[in-house]
Nucleic acid binder design. Structure first.
Lengths: 341, 341
DNA sequence: CTGAAAGCGCTAACAA
DNA sequence: TTGTTAGCGCTTTCAG
């Protein structure tokens, strides 16, 4: 069985197109790559042959010849809390969509932080968050690989990054509660191993300080972003001897759980407890009272990261950009002014 | 500026390794590809050179030379309801993890069903569901591309597929309700454009028929899998003149919404309404009463699909497998025997 | 404006 | 066991 033309487009190469259109392969290459210096009549001939033969250039040959790759690797730490989230899906959606637009190939790497990444054949890398896998980032940079980090603001490395202003967003949320008259404001954190959760906690503290409200350790509940942990925290929070009148929760998913617990314990939201979440997860819209929350531009962050990476790949240079996107408060119905004494 | 060795491993080629170890590139190639016919002493020499030089073969050159590609494309229709789900994330996680294990590259395609897929350089394709993009599947098959479809049982095409027994799972769920004594059993469907939702509806009807319970159109509420739609359906269902005593809901996310609505309307779960969901979404574990549901082995389905694709790619043949994975009932607290007259 | 020819880095007969 | 050599399909000088 000789290697015959089995499937159209499978074996059609630039040579076939060249023959069919009566020019050299060089000229065909020029047409493919839209290099202007081709006589119109030839361009048309080649174009028709390409159509007729359903020719699609081999990406491998192209990449081998040019040494360039338009593969974008998206690296997501296979970290329980992080991956199972609204965040992960939004991210993949944003990055995926922008890659389709820019004609980039998206390679997905779900990595345990330990194994070194295989970056062969990759043109650039997007690191989604940095959780224990800083070594992978540094490795990538050392290889001269265009890299951008998202959802993590990298201070001490010369790398492009795009993150959300988590501290600022948290501060807005808490300020809002303060303006409503609350003084006893609790915080249910996310997993503080993530920068996002750590920054939200930081913003919470800063807002209290600026408003001269003492920080009470018994009002801070550390969790891992899971609903189970949120439930536990909520129970403690509500049953406390001197309970808070408002709570800022590090994610909407958790905030919804807090709402549920409150209701089960006979509390009314927002009359007995004001709640602010973080994410602007559409789930927060349903349920009896809309969840007041902090909106993070996740899709935009994801899209920007692809654009930035594309810029870096194209440029070949190392000009680095650090972007912090604002997070904005979205007021719905889960907060009430504090009317106690 | 000449093209000098900028970064180690960037320009190291098989030639360098051959020189360093004093053998031909062929021998190096043999060592890389673990072809046995190499004298041990040479194998060691080459291995050391590879280590020292941090040589990593160029995947492009390899693929160009062999004509093979180990890139797996995962095609997910960019379809609102589908992508925003527990399902999508589990799927990506399962496929992603198995690809890392089998050393396959995972290419993610979020596609609108219209644009023809660019499959150049891809070794095989996994179609997640088929929603309006059957043409893409047929195209892929026509090109002789190893293809497998998941979450959609394809009857009429000679293609491997792995799906969940949605009809069977639904039947189990409804049978369980019948066994509990319920006669008025409603169903809130998912988006029946998806096969999964259609099959669940089918299973619901079949179970009723087998139990000689008349199917009532006013007990069937069609939705699009969204929480908003679930809410609307739940309100109608509960406020109906002759309300059902039990409901089988096509997804856990929706079932949770139904629970919430019921509570808001002063109903007690499970005393006033028994609820069964579908998915075994961990969210169903929290909340005051655990959600009885149908567990689908999503991760397993995802993993199997990669294995199957890998088999097809390796085999080169066209032996097709069609697998239906069982969906099992998980009993928790959201259902009670019917004690009415 | 065009084409010949030299690679890109690797694999796979085929000889030795 | 090993090495020689001919491609894989395309891009890119460099001469026309």
């Amino acid at each position: 069985m000789t290697r015959s033309k089995k499937t159209p487009s499978q074996n059609i190469s630039i040579v076939d197109v060249a023959k069919a259109s009566g020019v050299s392969i060089t000229t065909v290459s020029r047409v493919i790559n839209k290099i202007g210096t081709v006589k119109e009549s030839n361009r048309v001939k080649v174009a028709r042959a390409v159509k007729d033969l359903k020719f699609q250039p081999s990406v491998f040959a192209q990449r081998l010849a040019t040494g360039k790759s338009n593969v974008v690797a998206l690296v997501i730490p296979r970290y329980e809390g992080v991956f199972y989230s609204f965040y992960a899906l939004e991210l993949i959606r944003g990055v995926g969509t922008m890659c389709e637009v820019l004609k980039l190939d998206l390679l997905l790497h779900l990595t345990d932080a330990r194994t070194p990444l295989s970056l062969r054949g990759v043109g650039g890398v997007i690191f989604s968050d940095i959780i224990g896998n800083r070594a992978q980032l540094e490795d990538s940079m050392a290889k001269g690989m265009p890299s951008v980090v998202i959802n993590y603001y990298v201070d001490d490395l010369d790398v492009s990054c795009i993150a959300i202003d988590n501290a600022g967003g948290a501060e807005n949320a808490v300020n809002y509660l303060v303006e409503l008259g609350h003084k006893k404001i609790a915080h249910i954190t996310g997993d503080v191993k993530t920068q996002a959760a750590a920054k939200r906690l930081e913003g919470y503290k800063r807002a209290l300080e600026k408003n001269s409200i003492a920080i009470r350790q018994d009002y801070i509940f550390e969790t891992d972003y899971s609903r189970g942990a949120a439930r536990g925290a909520a129970e403690k929070l509500i049953k406390a001897a001197d309970p808070a009148t408002a709570v800022f929760v590090a994610s909407d998913a958790m905030a919804l759980e807090v709402m549920a617990v409150a209701r089960e314990l006979g509390k009314n939201i927002p009359n007995d407890l004001s709640i602010v979440g973080f994410d602007d997860n559409p789930s927060g819209l349903y349920g009896p009272v809309g969840l007041t929350t902090v909106r993070q531009p996740l899709i935009r962050m994801a899209e920007e990261s692809v654009k930035e990476l594309n810029r870096l790949i194209g440029l070949g240079t190392k000009s680095v950009k650090k972007i912090l996107l604002p997070a904005e408060l979205v007021i719905r119905e889960s907060c009430k002014p504090f009317t106690g004494e």
